[in-house]
Design a protein around this nucleic acid. Structure first.
Lengths: 233, 233
DNA sequence: CGAAATGAACTGGTCCAACCAGTTGACAGG
DNA sequence: CCTGTCAACTGGTTGGACCAGTTCATTTCG
């Protein structure tokens, strides 16, 4: 066991995680009232303020509805939770991790392909440069999963930056955060097949050539997005 | 002025909004330390707990980094903020609202098109049914913007549900929330051109026919996504 | 008897004050 | 000059009190 800082989890974070677990795990059905703040504080053996911090965050995530005087109630995460709750789902068992990983990669593919298209259209010269440099950084030989995921992230960050679409940028942040928390290992296997340097360099080149159509197709192929052919397995 | 419940903004929400404004407005540059919790409490004339609740939420949004003992520092939202911060950007002036609306619609187009493809491939019969019913609900005559946006949301919710992709579902929630907060008016004009009933019914039909390719193309066309032709205006 | 007013017993919202637990930096000692 | 130390910050946590809405059983009046 290596020597390092002990993981000091803040109390309110623990409460947040605990309630998240209860809600996403399905033990609290949408519409159900949560125990009162005072009861929760007693149950978790923490101060009420800590509970309140956790509840405020759950509210921000769209997982509960708080109303003064009334009770705090659970909301349906499928209806109200935002993309940022994606990660939490993987730890709660509400959705099988494998399914979740696949879904994330599918979204990555759709967004990535369109970002590549936009990037070819509107990226500044400096941004195109960044894409080409990122592509050149891909390792030529097989590499450990973490490094692969890291390099991949740098490349696609450059592409999304070039697309100059704020929504894509923030969405990438969320998905990247999700990948990081779920663990690179789960993604490495799925990424490996696409992770050859030449293809990425080629993509960077068509972007540099301002060929939006080619950039889109190349990216879609790279990311495993079914495109011109519909093959419902 | 109509009579109605006064808007009772929670104190911590006000603090959250205030700090959001400071950060996204650029008055606090990434790396800058925030005033201490005690100073903020005094500045906003509220209790320190309210400040803490707000800061916790900012931390969850990836906008600040909190460390015990050290000072709380501003993070670069372009690097760390998630998709859920999209709306906040529109109110801070960090990104022009028009640009933001366009970016959201572009993302909606990319995701919507792929969701339609998936929906045609994997949706359950019940889900296909829901899509067709939603399409039938489109008004045949011009309608007020709010209603248009609402009907549109129902339709695409059905499509995304049919895609059975959790990431798409949560992403839709986030984008829909963004549209709601920014105001339907900003979107109505852009939506109008695509909002004819026949096209949506046609899309629903190709989905029901399980034609993934056609569903994708139809949806892309409907959402204004450049596809087979790359026409950098 | 039934409908409306009442009010106690909840709920969350806010505040004060104190103390614990890390970080920082100036300052004294080697 | 380097180094240890300690006071003065920072955020983290707690307790308790009170305010402000909601709920619902009870009471009161038509």
């Amino acid at each position: 066991m290596a020597i390092g800082p002990v993981s000091r989890t803040a109390v309110s974070d623990a409460v947040f995680a605990g309630l998240l677990e209860e809600i996403l795990g399905g033990r609290l059905v949408p519409g159900d009232p949560l125990p009162s703040e005072r009861e929760l504080a007693e149950g978790f053996a923490v101060n009420r303020h800590a509970v309140r911090e956790a509840l405020k965050r759950l509210q921000q995530s769209g997982l509960v509805a708080i109303s003064q005087g009334g009770r705090t109630r659970v909301q349906d995460w499928r209806q109200h939770a935002g993309l940022e709750s994606l990660v939490a789902l993987s730890f709660s068992g509400a959705v099988p991790p494998a399914k979740l990983v696949e879904d994330i990669l599918v979204m990555r593919a759709a967004v990535g392909a369109d970002a590549a298209r936009l990037c070819a259209e509107v990226a500044t010269p400096a941004q195109v440069d960044a894409v080409q440099r990122a592509a050149a950084d891909y390792p030529e030989t097989p590499s450990p999963p973490e490094q692969l995921v890291a390099v991949d992230l740098v490349f696609w960050t450059a592409v999304v930056d070039g697309s100059q679409n704020v929504a894509y940028r923030l969405g990438l942040n969320t998905l990247a955060g999700g990948i990081a928390q779920i663990g690179a290992d789960h993604f490495a296997g799925l990424l490996e097949e696409y992770a050859d340097r030449d293809t990425h360099v080629a993509l960077a080149d068509v972007i540099a050539a301002r060929d939006a159509r080619a950039a889109r197709d190349q990216a879609a192929h790279l990311l495993g997005l079914p495109l011109s052919t519909s093959t419902p397995r």
